[in-house]
């Protein structure tokens, strides 16, 4: 019986090896800028293996 279902996610530890290109949207956590929070950004590094 399966007690744990693991949801597919990006492995953040792996991303330490191949991330950090800086191409993503700039981020701002301010409430009045509903356009660029960290949590809902997408990675823009097309070459990187996720």
């Amino acid at each position: 019986m399966k007690h744990i279902k693991t949801i597919q996610t990006r492995n953040l530890c792996e991303s330490a090896k191949n991330g950090g290109c800086g191409e993503c949207q700039t981020s701002c956590q301010s409430a009045c800028k509903t356009s660029c929070g960290i949590a809902n950004q997408k990675c823009e590094n097309k070459k990187e293996s996720k």
């Binding site: 949801i7 597919q8 996610t9 990006r10 953040l12 530890c13 991303s15 330490a16 191949n18 991330g19 950090g20 800086g22 993503c24 981020s27 509903t34 929070g37 960290i38 949590a39 809902n40 950004q41 997408k42 990675c43 590094n45 990187e48 996720k50």
Partner: peptide, 17 residues
């Protein structure tokens, strides 16, 4: 809903976070 937009597979790398 803006704050519930979360991309678990394609979100930012750890450097960004």
């Amino acid at each position: 809903f803006y704050h519930y937009m979360i991309d678990l597979t394609g979100g930012p790398c750890i450097y960004k976070r």
